[in-house]
Amino acid sequence: MATTHVFTGLAVVAPVAYVVPEFAGALAIGAILGGLAPDFDLVFTHRRTLHFPVAGLAVALPAVIAAAVAPAALTVGVAAFAVTAWVHAASDSLGGGPEMDPWNERTERAVYDHVRRRWLRPRRLIRYDGAPEDAVLGIALAIPALLVFDGWLTAAIVGAAVVSLVYALCRRRLVAWTPDWLE
């Protein structure tokens, strides 16, 4: 789920935000945007166009170094974005395929590796987005963020957790409700 990717990013940056609270806002915004950004390729070739599970590290690492050398809201936010977008893309191989009904396991394509020019196979540790285990993981990953961030972020995290649970309850029915032209 997109929310699980956002919660993962927030969990990754939460320790840094705890230690350096003046950058908490930049870290959170970068993590949220980085958790969402790869899935904007839904309108193109999903999990290929904007997903970089291997090459993303080549962007994330220099961004983290830049933030460590020249800490500022911008460098820290960009680093959070880059790391979270990379983790999002890399973690998609742990789930099912990108099709609308991944529980049928019709494809052995999880996410495209631009470096090796091939698709990585799905590991199916999380059977599909919105699976019960995805909801449990997402809620567990939201906890560190709830402990560190406050204000509007707390409300956003709780709201996203509710959306995650509702989505998980409805996920398998969504395929039947989806118009044919979206498939």
Rank of each mutant, 00 (worst) to 15 (best):
V54D: 00
A67L: 04
G77S: 06
L57K: 08
F81P: 03
P71M: 13
T49Q: 12
A66D: 11
T84H: 02
N104L: 13
A68P: 08
P102Y: 05
F81K: 03
A82Y: 01
A80N: 00
L61T: 02
M100L: 14
G77R: 08
A58D: 04
V59T: 15
I65S: 03
G97Y: 10
P53E: 10
D92F: 09
G95C: 12
T45I: 14
W86T: 01
L61H: 04
P102S: 04
R48S: 14
V69I: 05
A68K: 08
M100T: 10
A67M: 03
W86Y: 10
H88G: 09
P71S: 10
A58E: 03
A72R: 14
G77C: 07
L61C: 05
F81E: 02
E99V: 11
G77V: 11
G97F: 07
R47A: 14
F52L: 15
A68Q: 07
H51T: 12
P62W: 12
H46N: 11
D92K: 04
P71I: 08
A80Y: 00
A90G: 07
A70K: 11
L61A: 15
L74Y: 09
V64Q: 03
A82W: 03
L74K: 10
A85Q: 00
L61R: 02
A63N: 03
A79G: 06
V78H: 05
W86D: 00
G77P: 04
P102C: 08
W103E: 08
G56V: 09
V69R: 13
T45M: 12
T75F: 13
P98C: 06
V59P: 09
G56Q: 04
G56D: 01
G77K: 03
L61D: 00
F81L: 06
I65Y: 04
L57I: 10
A67K: 07
V54R: 06
H51I: 15
P62Q: 13
T49V: 12
P62S: 12
E99T: 15
A67D: 05
A72V: 10
F52S: 05
I65H: 01
T75C: 13
H46R: 15
V69L: 11
V87W: 09
A82P: 00
M100E: 15
A70D: 11
A55W: 01
V64G: 08
V54F: 01
N104Y: 11
A66R: 09
E99Q: 13
A82G: 03
G77T: 09
W103C: 06
I65D: 02
G77M: 04
P102H: 05
P53H: 05
A60C: 11
G56C: 08
A55K: 12
M100P: 12
E99Y: 11
G96Y: 04
T84N: 13
A79L: 10
S91T: 11
D101V: 15
T84I: 01
T49R: 15
A66K: 05
D101N: 12
V83P: 00
R48N: 10
A80W: 00
A68T: 06
A66Q: 09
V76A: 08
G97P: 05
D101E: 15
V59K: 09
M100V: 13
F81G: 01
A90D: 07
E105Q: 15
P98K: 14
L74Q: 09
T45H: 12
P98W: 11
T75H: 14
T49S: 15
A60W: 10
H88T: 10
N104C: 05
V83E: 00
D92C: 05
A63E: 02
T84K: 01
A68L: 14
A72W: 04
A58Q: 06
